[in-house]
Nucleic acid binder design. Structure first.
Length: 203
DNA sequence: GAGTAGATCCTCT
DNA sequence: GAGGATCTACTCA
């Protein structure tokens, strides 16, 4: 199957919700330490920058950590949560607009042995790449990847022309952002209905 | 199967 | 010095 690396223009579109929806079904490829792992994206969450309380960049907050989100679309934003989990995001939109998309779940396609070794799991169960913490671990994504261009060979997103029925595209409120008040209820989470790798309730 | 506690460390105040 | 875009294991049923 032929894969085409997504161009920067894909990520630089203004509507982060549209980009998030379009990311579903695409393939995330990592090439770390000479080991290739790849998986199809089945769940994402959009974070709408300065107007979104759940975003790190809410209200124009700008720190060392969030600086990457203000870059032009098409780079990775990785950060450590709860001292344990690395969360992988894709920065979108133009420079100075800190929109980002959190990739929450993948369906493993390549390098499953490598994923097992990285996560310390014995069997390739659904939990291998379900949830942002597991996903990053399985793909070998770490904090130092923050700011990486997705045009490099080490980490990129590709389209293999996979298509799915529109009726399988679902949205829901985001997960784990209860602190964000009203913004926590926005339906900015998108996933493929019925895919067993999607985290949380799958209906 | 559902609910809860604990892990663990970087970042910002 | 507090807290977080989470996961796992353990308890109880």
């Amino acid at each position: 199957m032929k894969r085409k690396k997504l161009k920067p223009e894909f990520f630089r579109r203004k509507n982060v919700l549209q980009v998030a929806r379009d990311l579903l079904g695409k393939i995330l490829v990592s090439n770390q330490d000479g080991l290739v792992t790849a998986g199809r994206i089945v769940e994402v969450e959009a974070y709408q920058g300065v107007t979104d309380k759940a975003s790190h960049a809410y209200g124009g907050r700008r720190t060392n950590r969030t600086e990457v989100m203000y870059a032009r679309g098409g780079v990775a934003y990785v950060y450590l949560c709860y001292g344990i989990h690395h969360l992988f995001n894709v920065v979108t939109n133009e420079k100075e607009i800190p929109h980002a998309i959190l990739v929450r779940a993948l369906e493993p396609l390549e390098g499953i042995e490598t994923m097992l070794a990285r996560t310390g799991k014995k069997r390739a169960g659904y939990s291998l790449t379900r949830g942002p913490g597991n996903l990053s671990k399985a793909m070998g994504i770490r904090r130092q990847h923050s700011g990486y261009s997705l045009q490099l060979a080490a980490l990129y997103i590709a389209d293999d022309n996979y298509r799915f029925g529109k009726d399988r595209l679902r949205s829901s409120p985001r997960i784990g952002v209860d602190y964000a008040g009203e913004d926590a209820k926005r339906p900015y989470r998108f996933y493929l209905q019925g895919n067993p790798f999607v985290s949380g309730k799958n209906s």
